[in-house]
Amino acid sequence: MAGRLKTGIDVLDRKLDGGLPPGCVVAYTAEPASQSELLLYELTAARGTLYVSTERSKDVIEHSFAATQAQVGSPTVRHIDADDPLEETTRLIGALPDGANLIIDTMDVLERASTDAYVEFLNALKARMVETGSIALLHCLKGRAEPENRTRTEHLADAVFDLRTNVEGTEIENHLSIPKYRVGGGPNETIKLELSERVEIDTSRDIA
């Protein structure tokens, strides 16, 4: 579809009619023990990317990019290590160029801010994505102790990508679903992915 920004992941772009619309904010939920970072890494190959890390250091992220077999670009990596992570992240987003990717890995640190401050941050982030015609992918870890503001992240997001990882006997299965896609016409079925060296469609079993 004209005007869409490709994610760089072929199977996902086909399901999304060519990619994501400019200005789109995606909440990407996944288990901590999954290979969810592979999708983040491959997104960087599509266009210029600001990769904001709230937990892993800049050196660790850059080492991961150098070691991965996935197709990656040359993202600008920044680590948030400040007393006010929302303020620092807002400052970085303010310098985002037009038509870029923004990846925040992970949102958990930011989601622990006060609700009022966090909602203000989310609205400013969305406005910046629209202003620059960029797309944002917010990496949200699932688990027993999810931050209270996770519901705000999923509510504001234009789309929710949910990665589920199951161990069945000797097989590890990864299913990506898009339960929310308010920008129109999301896929109705899950996508089985092979997450090993890179993001690929799982051809060993039928698509769910």
Score class of each variant (00 low, 15 high):
110 L>H: 12
124 A>I: 03
107 M>K: 10
67 A>G: 03
183 V>A: 12
154 E>L: 15
116 D>H: 07
8 G>P: 01
68 T>C: 08
89 T>K: 02
12 L>A: 00
205 R>G: 00
60 V>G: 05
49 T>N: 02
120 E>T: 12
116 D>A: 14
47 R>N: 11
153 T>A: 11
13 D>M: 03
75 P>H: 07
38 L>S: 03
200 E>W: 02
87 E>F: 14
33 A>N: 06
167 V>T: 14
31 E>T: 12
125 L>R: 14
118 Y>L: 04
101 N>M: 08
62 E>Q: 14
64 S>F: 06
47 R>K: 13
9 I>N: 01
92 L>C: 03
24 C>R: 03
111 E>H: 03
69 Q>F: 11
196 S>R: 15
176 L>P: 09
126 K>M: 07
41 Y>H: 07
79 H>Q: 14
172 I>N: 05
91 R>Y: 04
96 L>Y: 05
34 S>D: 04
153 T>I: 10
141 L>V: 02
27 A>Q: 06
200 E>T: 13
157 A>Q: 00
114 S>N: 14
197 E>H: 15
203 T>I: 12
128 R>T: 14
6 K>S: 11
76 T>E: 01
186 G>Y: 12
3 G>K: 01
96 L>T: 05
134 S>Q: 06
7 T>S: 13
72 V>P: 08
28 Y>R: 01
160 V>F: 04
37 E>D: 09
77 V>F: 05
22 P>K: 07
207 I>W: 10
160 V>M: 05
12 L>C: 00
174 N>W: 09
187 P>Q: 06
194 E>Y: 08
167 V>F: 09
196 S>W: 09
152 R>V: 02
43 L>Q: 10
86 L>R: 10
203 T>R: 14
184 G>Q: 13
44 T>V: 13
65 F>W: 11
101 N>A: 06
182 R>C: 09
86 L>T: 09
196 S>T: 14
203 T>W: 09
67 A>F: 10
69 Q>M: 09
31 E>V: 07
85 P>T: 10
69 Q>T: 11
31 E>H: 14
78 R>D: 00
102 L>E: 02
139 H>M: 06
112 R>L: 13
207 I>Y: 07
28 Y>M: 05
170 T>I: 06
98 D>G: 07
93 I>H: 01
62 E>R: 13
197 E>N: 15
143 G>R: 04
145 A>F: 10
114 S>F: 06
40 L>G: 10
75 P>G: 07
48 G>W: 11
198 R>P: 00
8 G>A: 03
108 D>V: 10
179 P>S: 07
182 R>I: 15
117 A>F: 04
162 D>I: 04
126 K>G: 00
80 I>M: 11
201 I>G: 08
207 I>H: 03
160 V>G: 00
75 P>S: 01
160 V>L: 08
169 G>S: 09
191 I>D: 03
104 I>W: 07
9 I>M: 04
1 M>T: 09
109 V>R: 13
193 L>C: 11
87 E>D: 14
